[in-house]
Design a protein around this nucleic acid. Structure first.
Length: 726
DNA sequence: AAGGCAAATGTTTTT
DNA sequence: CATTTGCCTT
């Protein structure tokens, strides 16, 4: 009976796999390394291998651990397993490295010397703390930028190095960073908080220093699967090696060509070390691509081939050539955005879905102009990344109140909102409170209580502080009997936060109020993992590790905007890569170091391989950056694409114009008989300054398209337009 | 202590 | 260019 079942399932599991995928899914070698090119079905292999383990090899889901890098990937993996199985696997651990580390530390907080309710610092909190530490050390913030110190500390932690491990070589730079690091570590310990990197490092040390804990997990997990293996850093790799011990099997899936997180400590070399450290390994290459047309793959291969350090893979497909890769040279970023909006308009007119199209860019700053153009063209869009929901100022303030309601001794939260909204507790008073806390070795709350009792504050300040303490006490009184959503309402109403932002004028205040309302809604929807336990702490923990990137209107048909980094792992029938210019992409910060340039190239490869049917590359000859204009040439990555798959879109055929004009329009490249040139800066008596985008016709009766800074694109008859050169 | 104004100053990617 | 920082006034 059981056997029959298994036999049936085998066909279901292996049904849709190609030979290489099947080899990876069914391998009985102890460890498996899958080098999976873009679009070659790596998630499918992972999902099917898990199901294979459970259904064919009879491994309990309880004994399986699957690790990803993003919450999104973790969710997707679960969903796809459920789908394939037709039911939900219980007991299996699926999560991000950070999420799993958090889980371990929650379970073993005593062993790692953390308070039971330790808080997680996001990078913003971390920076605040670094600044505080530096001020205490009386370091000049001009000479030692706090951001740099923060970055340095994180880099050390990613390598597994604590301040005690680092040799002070006498170098001033190093010595200073080290001092900050030491103090920062001490502060974190005192406050009972840990940053992202610390989460991983502490989890590693948990296992290193507590063999019995490690043994427990080694015994439990018989199979570990790691997605995006090229993104693992030194600590994560060490963590895996410890876990694996003597029985556990590992399946790692990755692509060295898609390693784009080197800047935050990821080590592609881990892929190379794998075959040595996880022995014996069965290595499988997935090179057949099921995503893109042949032309798109040719472009991708041509770009990535220029990298020296590669394991070497060449994607191929048995689908047809498909359409050419299109290249559009825009005059400026506005023209670029308008062109993209225009193409999207066409796409929708052709009956295609908007959410099958994506606009990808190198840096978040590029999204503004694109958004404006889409707004104007009335194309719904959804933007990913940028500022995270739970990292917004107003949200963090609201969360801080919630944290205080839970625990008045949460110094990070206390400090954040003691004077927000302003209630007369200024910098001086706060300093006194901090000093008192330090002297009495107590929390800020404790210090306040003491200062009030001993009259250690001037009258006004004392009243203000007492008022704040009273407010928090009132707010938390009986709040644990309330529903989460009511607690959230209490936090934003009674604290005065919502009124503060209601009074804030302009678009911003409005957005903040909306965000707070969205937070309340999120509280209403929150499903706790442990229904019997208090819900608020569970919510706060979840929030710390989840950026809140799921958007409310996820099912609306909207074009997707995101950075190249956040596009990894996704695919779209229609893709625009915007800003294909030198100094922007590759970014000028990456030009000096060959390693960084190679990473940029991989980023380009990731971008190109997101496209299934049609790929547009666009660049702007002139782009405003920090207010001033800069002229860049087309990206080297574009130049690496062979001309037989690249089609340069001729300007005059693609410029936006009312269709009634399109039929009879005759265009001239240069407008040579008009006295003006394409791209020229001109001035109009009413519309102000603009750029000439196109000509139709010749001589004084020619129609000229001008993109004005104030009023957008206008089409004018040359001899009546009274344009002047600028 | 708060709020308004001017000046400076910084921007790659993110769990 | 925007936003944040710092200095100044109330």
């Amino acid at each position: 009976m059981l056997l029959d079942c298994a036999a049936m399932d085998v066909t279901a599991i292996l049904d849709k796999l190609n030979p290489a995928q099947e080899e990876a899914v069914t391998s009985d070698q102890r460890h498996v390394l899958v080098l999976a090119g873009a679009g070659s079905g790596k998630t499918r292999v992972l999902v099917h291998r898990i199901v294979w383990q459970v259904q064919v090899e009879n491994i309990s889901p309880h004994a399986i651990l699957a690790v990803t890098f993003t919450n999104k990937a973790a969710r997707e993996m679960r969903e796809r397993i459920d789908q394939l199985l037709g039911m939900s696997l219980r007991g299996m651990w699926v999560g991000t490295f950070h999420g799993l580390a958090h889980r371990l530390l929650k379970a073993h907080w005593r062993d790692v010397g953390l308070p039971e309710n330790f808080q997680i610092l996001d990078s913003d909190d971390q920076l605040r703390l670094v600044k505080r530490v530096m001020r205490a050390l009386e370091l000049d913030e001009q000479r030692w930028p706090p951001r740099q110190a923060q970055w340095w500390i994180n880099a050390q932690k990613d390598e597994g190095l604590r301040s005690a491990h680092i040799q002070d070589s006498g170098d001033v730079q190093l010595a200073t960073m080290l001092r900050i690091y030491r103090e920062y570590e001490a502060s974190c310990d005192r406050l009972g908080v840990i940053d992202f990197a610390e989460l991983l490092l502490r989890a590693l040390e948990l296992w290193r220093h507590h063999p019995q804990v490690l043994a427990h997990y080694q015994e439990r997990f018989q199979h570990v699967l790691v997605d995006e293996f090229q993104d693992t850093n030194a600590v994560q790799y060490a963590w895996l090696r410890l876990l694996v011990g003597s029985v556990c099997r590992v399946t790692a899936v990755g692509d060295d060509d898609q390693s784009i997180y080197g800047w935050r400590g990821a080590k592609v070399e881990n892929i190379l070390s794998y075959e040595r450290d996880f022995e014996p390994t069965h290595t499988v290459r997935l090179e057949q691509n099921y995503r893109s047309t042949s032309n798109i793959l040719k472009a991708a291969n041509a770009v990535i081939e220029k990298n020296a350090d590669r394991l070497g893979k060449k994607l191929w497909t048995d689908s047809g050539d498909g359409e050419m890769v299109a290249l559009y040279a825009a005059f400026n970023e506005h023209d670029e955005a308008r062109y993209i909006a225009d193409r999207l308009h066409q796409w929708v007119n052709d009956g295609q879905r908007r959410d099958e199209a994506a606009i990808l860019y190198r840096s978040n700053a590029q999204s503004r102009v694109l958004e404006a153009a889409l707004l104007q063209a009335e194309i719904p869009y959804r933007i990913y990344g940028g500022q995270r929901f739970y990292e917004r100022l107003e949200i963090k303030n609201a969360l801080a109140y919630l944290r205080l309601m839970l625990n008045v001794d949460d110094d990070t939260a206390f400090e954040r909102v003691i004077n927000i909204p302003a209630r007369g507790i200024g910098e001086r008073t706060q300093d006194t409170i901090r000093q008192t806390a330090r002297g009495a070795n107590t929390t800020l709350w404790g210090a306040c209580v003491e200062l009030i009792a001993t009259n250690g504050l001037p009258g006004r300040a004392k009243n203000a502080v007492a008022g704040f303490l009273g407010l928090i006490e009132d707010m938390s009184l009986g709040s644990d009997a309330l529903k989460l959503i009511e607690q959230a309402e209490t936090a934003i109403e009674r604290s005065g936060l919502i009124d503060l932002y209601r009074r804030e004028k302009g678009e911003r205040g409005l957005a903040r109020v909306e965000n707070l309302e969205e937070l309340v809604a999120a509280c209403g929807n929150f499903q706790p993992e442990h229904a019997e336990q208090p819900i608020l702490p569970q919510f706060l923990d979840q929030v710390a590790l989840d950026a809140g990137d799921r958007q409310a209107d996820e099912d609306q048909d909207a074009v997707q905007l995101m950075t190249l980094h956040s596009a990894k792992g996704l695919e779209f029938p229609l893709v625009f890569l915007a800003g294909m210019e030198e100094n922007l992409f590759p970014h000028k910060m990456s030009l000096d170091e060959p390693g960084r340039l190679e990473e940029e190239r991989r980023l380009a490869y990731v971008g190109i391989t997101r496209a299934m049917q049609k790929l547009y590359l666009t660049f702007a000859e002139c782009r405003s950056i920090y207010g001033s204009e800069s002229y860049n040439s087309v990206s080297r990555f574009v130049r690496d694409i062979p001309s037989d798959v690249l089609e340069e879109v001729r300007l005059q055929n693609t410029i936006t114009r009312p269709t009634s004009y399109a039929a009879g329009a005759l265009s001239s490249d240069l407008g040579d008989d008009t006295g003006f040139a394409l791209g020229q800066l001109v001035c109009h008596p009413m519309y102000g300054e603009g750029v000439i985008l196109n000509f139709e016709g010749h001589g004084p009766r020619a129609r000229v398209h001008v993109q004005f800074e104030e009023v957008g694109t206008k089409i004018l008859i040359l001899d009546s337009a009274r344009l002047s050169a600028v």
